[in-house]
């Protein structure tokens, strides 16, 4: 028609595909928000001793309020923890064991409770966040969950879980902070 712009069928298909692609991509969820440093620490212990995975670098774990609302169930003589969905634990990892004041962490490792996510392992998403670009990546290997499985047994950290409570893969459960 005169005066009307002409579009080829190929253009129409390309536009349709672009729209479909745009519709199918959900916005990426941010697990460690900007205000996470205001979250409460899960332990008062200075975690600068060497451990497998993080070696001898300072770690500071913080948990959101949702996580601190968790109450363990009593099972026999032990306790069973089941952190509620949307619990997020952010562990700051510094470059050295004793960083200077004002130093920023070089990496964040994140546990986000989301049992319905198909990428979840043991109910948690295991995420790394590179700094400073802020890109969060869900870890698909089983390294994190394998290591954290020790939190449910006796281990050498914190109170050592000598009672072998099921701590839902978290080494420092609420109450540990005071220790």
């Amino acid at each position: 028609m005169k005066g009307m712009p002409r579009y080829s069928p190929l253009t129409a298909v390309a536009v349709a595909l672009a729209l479909l692609a745009g519709c199918s991509r959900a916005p990426e969820e941010i697990y460690a928000p900007a205000d996470y440093p205001t979250w409460e620490r899960t332990t008062s212990i200075t975690l600068n001793y060497p451990i497998p995975g993080h070696e001898n670098r300072l770690r500071i774990p913080r948990m959101n309020a949702k996580g601190f609302s968790a109450i363990p169930a009593r099972v026999g003589s032990g306790l069973k923890w089941d952190f509620p969905e949307d619990t997020v634990i952010v562990k700051e990892v510094y470059a050295t064991a004793n960083p200077a004041p004002g130093d920023k962490p070089v990496q964040l490792t994140i546990m986000a409770k989301d049992p319905n996510d198909k990428r979840a392992q043991a109910g948690w998403l295991w995420i790394t966040k590179d700094l400073p670009d802020g890109k969060e990546t869900v870890f698909t290997g089983n390294f994190c969950v394998t290591c954290h499985a020790n939190a449910n047994e006796k281990h050498p950290y914190g109170d050592g879980n000598s009672n072998e409570d099921f701590r839902d893969y978290v080494y420092f459960v609420p109450g540990e902070a005071a220790k």
């Binding site: 001793y49 070696e55 050498p156």
Partner: peptide
Amino acid sequence: RPLINLPKCAVCHGSDHTV
């Protein structure tokens, strides 16, 4: 298949390595 140096292994093998 990597054998991870779990915290419970670290007692004997030390904590200075991950694998």
